[in-house]
Simulated assay, not measured.
Amino acid sequence: MKTCPKCGHTQSEGNFCGKCGTAMISNTTNNEPTEAAATQPDPAQYYQQAPQPEAAPAQPNEQIEKLKSESKLFLSFLLQQVKSPSAHLQQVNSGLKNSLLSIGLYILLTALAIYSIIRSLFGAAYGIYEGPSIITIVFYLALFSLLVLAVNLTSVYVTSKLFSENQTFSEIIRKIGGYFALPIALSAVSILLALISSYTVSGIILYIGIILAFGTVPTYVMIKLLAHQTKSIDGFYAFLFYIAFTAILGFLISLLIMDSAIGELIGYMGMDF
């Protein structure tokens, strides 16, 4: 319907009033915006009613969990080796990772022990430490240890190849590294003693650990292999071959060491070959 704004006449059709001729006004014009506004949803109501996504549950870091699991297994391995050092010899082609970790941990702890002793001695004597940095000690000790370990592995490998059962390098590493639990413990004790300024006892314990790791352990493994089986020669002569072969390789390596920066590091400790 349309209403005349002048005379109030209403009519359904036509744009001008039939009585006075004034332009008509539609009654729905003012209502349409209101009706349209009524049909529009309230934005605030929309956001209130919209479902919120649920927070995803926190997923554990797989790498961290794996590291924790492997650390527990490695700790159990060390404890088992302290209780029964030769238990791993009965296993075949297993535990190589633990043996490698044992060797690496021993080298690291021994480097820290040497650094602690040198730093404490320099500090007590001169009041200030001017010796090699811990990075230098770790690097050269790791290189020195790998050279000595290479001599041991080569000697055991060649001797077993000639006079006993064939052994791969990985199997020899597994057998030798399985005995490093005790040297690891000695290096850890040496660090603690160095921290409380017990230099003499700390150095003695550290030296015992080095002898065990690079002298006693490879020799014992070689004896066990020769006792198990020998080829065409008495085990005693095979063992003498091992000693002679190790001595020759050790002498050559010692010349290389003394002509390098490793010799300077050894000089700080007062060690002689």
Rank of each mutant, 00 (worst) to 15 (best):
residue 52 Q to V: 06
residue 40 Q to E: 13
residue 47 Y to K: 15
residue 53 P to I: 02
residue 53 P to M: 04
residue 50 A to W: 00
residue 44 A to R: 09
residue 45 Q to R: 08
residue 59 Q to S: 13
residue 57 P to R: 03
residue 48 Q to E: 07
residue 37 A to W: 01
residue 54 E to Q: 11
residue 44 A to Y: 08
residue 51 P to G: 03
residue 61 N to I: 05
residue 63 Q to E: 12
residue 39 T to R: 12
residue 60 P to R: 02
residue 56 A to P: 00
residue 52 Q to Y: 04
residue 41 P to G: 03
residue 57 P to E: 08
residue 43 P to R: 03
residue 45 Q to M: 11
residue 57 P to N: 06
residue 42 D to W: 02
residue 46 Y to R: 10
residue 43 P to G: 02
residue 44 A to E: 13
residue 45 Q to G: 09
residue 39 T to H: 05
residue 37 A to C: 10
residue 39 T to L: 11
residue 65 E to S: 06
residue 57 P to C: 06
residue 39 T to S: 15
residue 64 I to M: 10
residue 45 Q to T: 14
residue 65 E to I: 03
residue 60 P to F: 01
residue 61 N to F: 00
residue 48 Q to A: 15
residue 56 A to E: 15
residue 39 T to K: 09
residue 50 A to N: 08
residue 46 Y to W: 12
residue 38 A to L: 12
residue 58 A to R: 05
residue 42 D to N: 10
residue 61 N to R: 05
residue 42 D to A: 08
residue 42 D to Q: 07
residue 64 I to H: 03
residue 45 Q to H: 09
residue 40 Q to L: 15
residue 65 E to C: 04
residue 49 Q to F: 06
residue 47 Y to N: 15
residue 60 P to W: 00
residue 38 A to Q: 13
residue 53 P to Y: 03
residue 46 Y to Q: 15
residue 56 A to Q: 07
residue 65 E to T: 04
residue 40 Q to N: 14
residue 48 Q to R: 14
residue 41 P to R: 04
residue 51 P to Q: 07
residue 54 E to W: 02
residue 40 Q to M: 14
residue 61 N to K: 08
residue 47 Y to T: 15
residue 37 A to G: 11
residue 48 Q to V: 06
residue 37 A to I: 07
residue 54 E to V: 10
residue 39 T to C: 09
residue 56 A to H: 07
residue 52 Q to E: 12
residue 48 Q to T: 10
residue 61 N to H: 07
residue 41 P to M: 04
residue 48 Q to P: 02
residue 59 Q to N: 12
residue 36 A to V: 10
residue 65 E to R: 03
residue 58 A to H: 09
residue 36 A to G: 06
residue 57 P to T: 04
residue 66 K to I: 05
residue 51 P to Y: 00
residue 43 P to T: 00
residue 39 T to Y: 07
residue 48 Q to H: 10
residue 50 A to Y: 08
residue 36 A to D: 10
residue 36 A to Q: 11
residue 60 P to S: 05
residue 54 E to G: 11
residue 36 A to F: 12
residue 50 A to R: 13
residue 42 D to C: 09
residue 61 N to Y: 00
residue 41 P to L: 07
residue 55 A to F: 05
